[in-house]
Nucleic acid binder design. Structure first.
Lengths: 241, 241
DNA sequence: CGCTACTTTGATATTTTTCAATCTTGGTGG
DNA sequence: CCACCAAGATTGAAAAATATCAAAGTAGCG
């Protein structure tokens, strides 16, 4: 349930990976042609418009999803009314974590999205049968786990500009979210979404953004994109935890 | 890499049975006798004194660990000098997450501990061979992931007493950390550790503890234990996110 | 019994949240 | 094609809370 970034598909693709392997390289799932075919047999491809709910918290968890294209967010609404965005999901990210047969959060499309949907029971049967493929899934999950831990570090920070700087750096790691040519990161989510992800108020995010711009680190181009003006200093600020 | 608790696999598994051992309750790993034997063949049992380092950040990741008894913490020291405690590990928790062949944090014993140590390569080979067993591991990992997400919610809170209340509730969920008879939770870690886990300053934790006591929710008995005086109100405060 | 590490408590400074008002922008329909 | 509307975003001022700096108090261990 988290952003991935890097390569690292759930379903198809190629190379090496971390956790559980002394070797190591990128972070990608390695599947054979046969495995990809097996998966495609149980997968359903979906196209959904922006804002569409994919599943809701506490609903019966019957599927696991993988993003093909677009952006998805998962969140929980707390009793107080506060909303916590758990993750933004980019292409190749898996989502649909459940507990006791129920989803633990709500998933909603931010942009129009294309997804794979895997019936839980079929997928589980397939994975149990194919240890190698399951291992690739496990790598995926451990990757999410690392992300979640990075997020904990981010949330541990007290300064809003620093949190936002870290967030921007995270978005830059997304292949589909950063254009090297123009040095531009796209931020398809609203300020509210960012605030709910960073654990800040909407206003603080807005002010932090203004501050980053004032310092000459980034320059917002409309609400949904920002150009990185000084990646070195931005990185320093992000790392100066 | 975190505490366990609740029932609740992500995917399947209903029975009972703890990790690598017979008895059990809910959220446990189900292994057959044969599987347990296989695991024990590659596992090494370790006993370490309090404060002993189990592995250090960036060190070569060659093993996965499982807590048998005692308490372990994982943490990272950030450039600024701030320390972030990633998790407290109780019996049955797995730890040793790596990236690119290196550990991503430091693991240190808080109390004297007994551990299983599994050589990474052996374990990986075994898991790939045995899809069922690997599935149990996967459940473990997804469980950690949920924990990490809960933690994100905790860190999203702004009020120190609330965070501490959530922390106490977390500790109460640990079988080995809560005595129902006396309604007492043990807090073997230092205030600094708690602060580093909650993303607060040491002083704020101390003050929040005093506040909880003042409100009559809990009563500290020495530094390492607290009696729950009003579990209902404590739970409300913890949930009032 | 005394040291050392850990905690608590106090006062101030910093930062963010809140509350409120205004401004933008994207979409819609006339 | 343009004006209008509503959701989203920004900015300001005051209030609340935690961090920080500093000092004193405790507890456990040798």
């Amino acid at each position: 349930m988290t952003r991935s970034r890097r390569p690292a598909p759930a379903v198809g693709s190629e190379k090496a990976q971390p956790f559980l392997t002394p070797t190591a390289a990128s972070d990608t799932v390695v599947l054979t042609e046969r495995q990809r075919i097996e998966l495609s047999k149980i997968a359903l491809r979906l196209r959904l418009p922006a804002r569409k709910f994919i599943y809701r918290e506490d609903g019966p968890a019957q599927s696991i999803y993988s993003v093909i294209d677009g952006l998805v967010k998962t969140y929980r609404d707390l009793p107080s009314g506060r909303r916590v965005v758990g993750s933004f999901l980019f292409p190749r990210d898996l989502f649909g974590l459940a507990q006791n047969g129920h989803y633990v959060n709500t998933a909603q499309a931010i942009s129009p999205v294309t997804l794979y949907r895997f019936p839980l029971t079929d997928l589980v049967a397939l994975l149990k049968r194919d240890g190698e493929m399951q291992f690739q899934f496990m790598l995926k999950v451990t990757h999410e786990l690392r992300d979640a831990q990075r997020r904990a570090i981010l949330l541990g920070r007290r300064d809003a500009p620093g949190r936002l700087a870290m967030f921007v750096m995270l978005m830059m790691e997304e292949p589909s979210g950063f254009d090297r040519e123009s040095s531009t990161v796209s931020l398809p989510m609203t300020r509210s979404d960012i605030a709910a992800f960073l654990g800040l108020s909407l206003e603080s995010v807005s002010r932090a953004a203004a501050e980053l711009q004032r310092r000459g680190l980034i320059e917002f181009q409309g609400r949904r994109a920002a150009r990185i003006l000084d990646q070195v200093r931005l990185g320093k600020l992000a790392a100066a935890v």
